[in-house]
Design a binder for these strands. Structure first.
Lengths: 191, 191
DNA sequence: AGAAAAACTTAATCTAGATTAAGAAATATA
DNA sequence: TATATTTCTTAATCTAGATTAAGTTTTTCT
């Protein structure tokens, strides 16, 4: 199971045997049943999670009580609230499994320890973050420039299988509009 | 002038004398007059830029010909199109100085060379990217949850001096609405 | 200093998407 | 296999912000 993380690392960097072992040794694993949380508003985010199997969403609840989904995570993604994790602040986010899931996780002190001295693990996280940055920028660009309907069509085009995997109201929330509006879009599309 | 980059690095990491020198040695510098570009749509983004003095905006031009500002950069920020820079693809972005500016810049091959072996410089960019990630996530969260008026007020609250520094139409574009709407907000506020 | 260009304002009209509400399907649970 | 819960749909009404267009103010350049 830890193999999936090992393989992911090897896709990007080439640690020595010792470097890899030192890193994998401080990884913990956990099974999360569907609908359970790995992070809840008001708590401290103590782990960065690598998703081995399953799907998660991170969302916050606004002042009107509406859930706003800001990210999804699936297999081979790292998921955390960086703000809370790095700055040791209380999180405003909830991270919930949308289906039965397995994660590997690493605590802040353990991660700090490895990052203090391991060149390749630093490289690994730097590269991951570069890719995340590209994805975030692209998302911001889309949000600015596309209508709701275009956002849905674009998302569907690039992630057809994923759309089947989650309830529509979560996708609507992620794309920045209401579930009712998503229904409208789909009705239009299939007519 | 390269002192400002050196100081920035020392705020986050502790390279050896040699590590710092090797890095600073491959940095180039450039003065950019107001309105000039350091990146233009269709070109390859060959540099990551560290802003010593001045202000830049990165924007793309949509199919209707409207400029959409997706980022600003000021003193002590790194600015590039990561997608183009990392993946060696043609950029869709323009990066323009909004006032006379000075940048330090590093080419992709030179940066790759340093990152291959320097632990501290890898750490440095990893930490920068973690902070960028936090900012991006916060921005997405705001964009989802705040009205145009709230976005402006929040931005103004946290960056009062910066609002004076750029034309309003750029800020409107960055916040995701039209300059006319920003005028409306301000008229309301000052009445 | 004067002309041209760039930036900002105001106001009327229009529209994408929100809101509200009610019912229908689908899924989970006993 | 019935009941409860969750998810999805439809439709009427409403609103934040876009669009268009014209005029004004500010900045830049010669």
């Amino acid at each position: 199971m830890i193999e999936s993380l090992k393989n992911h690392i090897l896709r990007f960097v080439s640690p020595s045997k010792k470097e890899m072992e030192d890193f994998l040794n401080i990884i913990e694993s956990e099974n999360i049943p569907a609908k359970h949380y790995i992070l809840k508003e008001g708590h401290y985010c103590n782990y960065n999670h690598f998703i081995v199997k399953g799907c998660f969403r991170s969302f916050f609840i606004n002042e009107k009580g509406v859930e706003k989904t800001i990210n999804f995570g699936i297999e081979d993604w790292w998921l955390t609230d960086f703000d809370s994790f790095m700055n040791r602040t209380q999180t405003q986010l909830n991270i919930q499994a949308t289906e039965d899931a397995t994660v590997l996780k690493i605590s802040k002190p353990n991660l700090d320890m490895v990052l203090k001295s391991s060149l390749e693990i630093n490289k690994y996280f730097r590269i991951i973050l570069e890719r995340v940055r590209i994805a975030d920028q692209r998302r911001i660009q889309y949000m600015f420039n596309l209508s709701g309907e275009e956002l849905y069509n674009t998302f569907y085009e690039y992630n057809p299988e994923f759309v089947q995997r989650i309830p529509q109201y979560m996708l609507a929330s992620y794309l920045g509009f209401t579930p009712e509006f998503l229904s409208k879009i789909r009705a239009k599309k299939h007519s």
